[in-house]
Every structure is written in structure tokens, then in C-alpha cells.
Amino acid sequence: MDLSFITDGWAGHLSYLLLVLSMLMRRMLWLRLLVIASALAGIAFDYFWLNNPVGVFWQTLLVLVNVAELLILWRNDRRATFTPEEEHFRSGLLHGLSPGQARRLFDRGRWEDLAPGTVLTRQGACPEFLTYLASGDVSVEVGGRAIRTVSGGHFIGEMSLMGDDAASATTVVSTPARAWRIERPKLLRLRETNHAAMAVVEAGIARDMRAKLMYQNAGDGQT
């Protein structure tokens, strides 16, 4: 192997390596920092090795755009404020989101006070909302028979909304509850337009599903 392929253009290799690494980042801050680092290495390669002013111009523009985006992220994070229930939700299941990202996600949905008897999902039908239950209790029913109760701090309807399946159970509010709800179309748009934020939401849903399964298995072991 000709080592000059590596040694003579190490800045070019570094630029592309950093760009590839940036695509693996889930947090927008690290993604943009790595893109900036990639562009800086690319500027060095274009200027000192290739003597390519066109490349220098476009790599410099890439740096400026990402610096501007970082400033916008910083401004949004500084302006973001949360109620106590939003902060509990964010720290428990959405702790990978920056304050600004979390604020935008909460604003896509809405907080509601739910009365007993409110149906959140119906067995055999696709849920209209993804619901985060902040407080209160929800009865889970299959075939008209109550099989368990879900209390505050958990998602409702997440398994169906993350795929295209109908709900496997009917969930009904059994005590006065407080919940954050986001409509299915808005969640699907988030998946298409903001992969990093949606990845955090999906990771939170996965953690919540594991917690509910562990609780259910522990309850089954006690009977």
C-alpha cells in the first residue's frame, strides 16, 4: 500500500473522517461542532495542499453557517423555560434533548387535565395521540377486562404510535389525571424533519417500555 495516499493528504482524510463522525451524533451540538472541525480541516487541505480557492470558499461558508446555527441553539437554550411537570418529564424521559429542543417539542403538543372515564386508546384502533401521563392512574383493558394500572410518569399509546399497528389494549383514565399529548401527524412530521430529536423521544419510549415490563414481571412474580 502506498503510504503517501495517507501521509500526503492527512488533512483531507481528517476532514472526511470528522464529517462521517458528525453523522453519528444524536445531539445537535456535537454534530455541528464536528462539522465545523471537518470544514476547518478541509480549509487547510484545500489551501495548503490543493491550492483550491473554490474549496476554501465553500468550506468557510460551511463554518459560518454552522457557527450561526450554534448561536441560534444557544439563544434558544437560554430562552427556554419549563414548568415543574415539564422539567420532570424532560429529566426523566427526554434528558438527551437540549432545553431549546425540549421547549419546541412541548409546544408541538399540549397539556390537558383528564377526567375519569376519558379513553386514551381503543383496542384495535390506531391511537390519535402519544400521551405522557404526568399524574393520575390509567386502567389498561384487554377484551373488556382490566389487566393492570399505569400510574404517572409513563407514556400511553407509545407501542402503536411508533409503528403502524392498532392499539393492543384500551386505556381509560381511572382517576383525575394530568397529561401531555401530541397528535400522531405531528409526531410523524418530527420523525421526518428532526431525526436527532425523534431519536431522543424513541430512546425515552424504549426506556419507559422496559420500566413497565420490569414492573409487570415483578408483579406477576408476586402473585
Rank of each mutant, 00 (worst) to 15 (best):
L3W: 14
L3V: 13
I6L: 13
W10P: 00
Y16H: 06
Y16V: 12
L18V: 08
V20M: 13
L21G: 01
L24R: 11
L24Y: 11
R26P: 03
R27A: 14
L29R: 15
W30G: 07
L33I: 14
L34W: 08
A39G: 03
A39R: 11
I43A: 10
I43G: 07
A44P: 00
A44K: 02
A44G: 10
F45P: 00
F48R: 02
L50F: 05
P53M: 10
Q59I: 00
L62H: 05
V65D: 06
E69Y: 04
E69K: 09
I72V: 14
I72P: 00
L73A: 12
W74D: 12
R75A: 05
D77L: 01
R79M: 07
R79I: 08
A80V: 02
T83G: 04
P84C: 02
E86I: 05
E86S: 11
E87H: 02
H88A: 15
G92C: 01
L94Y: 01
L94E: 13
L94R: 03
H95Y: 12
H95Q: 15
S98V: 01
G100A: 08
G100F: 05
A102W: 06
A102N: 04
R103W: 12
R104F: 03
R104I: 00
F106R: 00
F106V: 12
F106Q: 10
G109V: 03
R110F: 09
R110M: 15
A115D: 13
T118Y: 01
V119C: 13
V119S: 10
V119A: 03
L120S: 03
T121H: 02
R122I: 12
A125Y: 08
P127G: 13
F129P: 01
L130M: 11
L130S: 09
T131D: 11
Y132F: 13
D137L: 09
V138D: 02
V138Q: 07
R145D: 04
R148M: 10
V150I: 15
H154R: 12
H154K: 06
F155Y: 15
S160P: 08
L161P: 00
L161Q: 09
D165S: 12
A166K: 06
A169Q: 11
V173I: 13
S174E: 02
T175Q: 08
T175A: 13
A179T: 09
A179Y: 06
R181S: 07
K186I: 11
K186C: 10
R189S: 14
L190H: 06
L190D: 06
E192R: 14
E192T: 12
H195Y: 02
A196N: 14
M198N: 14
V200A: 15
V200T: 13
G204L: 04
A206C: 13
M209S: 11
M209Q: 14
R210W: 00
K212R: 15
K212H: 10
K212P: 01
Y215I: 09
Q222K: 11
T223S: 08
